[in-house]
C-alpha cells in the first residue's frame, strides 16, 4: 500500500472507530471491526489502543516510517441505527475491497443523527418511565409527575448544552435537580405522598445504565483499564444525578 493510501486509510479508521464508540459501540466491538478493516487492506497487525474517550491506532508498514493517529472520542449517545450501519460498512469493506479513496465518502453517507427528533426521544423516555412507574407502584399522579420531571431533565440535557455549554457532570446534576424539584412541588401541593419513590423512577431514566453493563463486560473480558474507567464515569454521573435529587429534597423542605 502506498503512503498516501495508508494515510487515507488511517484517517478513515480513526474517524470510523470514534463514531462507533460515540454511538454506543463497545470497546471489543470497535477493536474487532477495526481489525477487520485493516485485514481487508493487507495490514495484519495494527496496534489499536482504546480507552472510553481515546482511540489510538498505529501501523508499521515494511521499510517505512510508522503511521499513527489519535482521536479524542466525545460523549456517548446510544444510536443503534448508526452503530448497525457502521457494522455493515465494516463487513462491506472486508468483502468487497472498496477503494481507499471512497471510504470517507461512504462513512459520511451514514447519518450521525438518531432516526427520531429530540421531542420524540423525550417522549420515548417518558413512556419507558411511565411503564416502570407501574412496576414500582407510583400511581397515576406519580406517573404524571415522573413524565413531566423526565421531560424537563432530558430537555435540559439536550438543549442547554447547545445554548450554554457546561461541564457534563454539572449538567447531570442540574437536570436531576429540576426533575426532583417537579416531584417535590407535587409532594408539597399534595399530588403525591411518596417523592422518594418517584425520584428512584426518574433516576432510572437519568443514570448511564448501558455503560455500567459494558463496564462489567469489559472487565470480565480482561480489559480492566477501559472497564474500570467506564465504571468510574458511570459512577460519577450517577453521583451527580443523586446529588441533584438530594439538593431538591433539601431545598424544598426535605423528607430526609
Amino acid at each position: 500500500m502506498e503512503r498516501k493510501e495508508l494515510n487515507e486509510l488511517m484517517d478513515f479508521a480513526v474517524e470510523f472507530g470514534a463514531r462507533l464508540m460515540t454511538s454506543g459501540g463497545e470497546i471489543w466491538r470497535t477493536d474487532d471491526l477495526l481489525h477487520l478493516i485493516f485485514h481487508a487492506y493487507g495490514i495484519e497487525e495494527p496496534d489499536i489502543f482504546m480507552l472510553p474517550h481515546t482511540l489510538m491506532i498505529s501501523v508499521q508498514p515494511k521499510d517505512q516510517e510508522p503511521v499513527m493517529r489519535h482521536k479524542t472520542v466525545g460523549d456517548i449517545l446510544v444510536n443503534m441505527e448508526q452503530l448497525t450501519q457502521l457494522n455493515r460498512l465494516a463487513w462491506e469493506i472486508r468483502d468487497n475491497h472498496i477503494p481507499v479513496s471512497t471510504l470517507k465518502e461512504k462513512l459520511h453517507a451514514i447519518s450521525i443523527h438518531p432516526p427520531y427528533p429530540r421531542p420524540m426521544i423525550i417522549c420515548g423516555m417518558a413512556i419507558a418511565l411511565l411503564s416502570l412507574n407501574y412496576f414500582i407502584g407510583g400511581g397515576v399522579m406519580g406517573g404524571v409527575l415522573v413524565a413531566i420531571g423526565i421531560a424537563i431533565a432530558m430537555g435540559t440535557q439536550m438543549y442547554m448544552h447547545e445554548i450554554f455549554p457546561v461541564n457534563h457532570l454539572l449538567l447531570c446534576g442540574i437536570s436531576s435537580f429540576l426533575a426532583g424539584s417537579v416531584i417535590m412541588i407535587g409532594y408539597k401541593t399534595g399530588l403525591h405522598s411518596n417523592p422518594y419513590l418517584l425520584m428512584i423512577i426518574n433516576c432510572i431514566g437519568l443514570i448511564p445504565g448501558i455503560p455500567l453493563i459494558n463496564a462489567c463486560r469489559e472487565m470480565l473480558n480482561g480489559r480492566v483499564l477501559s472497564g474500570g474507567l467506564l465504571f468510574m464515569t458511570a459512577f460519577l454521573e450517577t453521583l451527580a444525578v443523586a446529588c441533584g435529587f438530594y439538593l431538591s429534597l433539601v431545598i424544598f423542605g426535605g423528607v430526609l
Binding site: 443503534m80 441505527e81 432516526p115 426521544i121 423516555m125 413512556i127 419507558a128 411511565l130 416502570l132 412496576f135
Partner: peptide, 18 residues
C-alpha cells in the same frame, strides 16, 4: 404489557428504527 411499552420507550431513545 408494561415491559413491552417500557422497552419500546427505551428503544426510541436508543435510536432503533420503527
Amino acid at each position: 404489557l408494561f415491559s413491552f411499552t417500557c422497552t419500546i420507550g427505551f428503544g426510541i431513545c436508543f435510536g432503533i428504527r420503527k
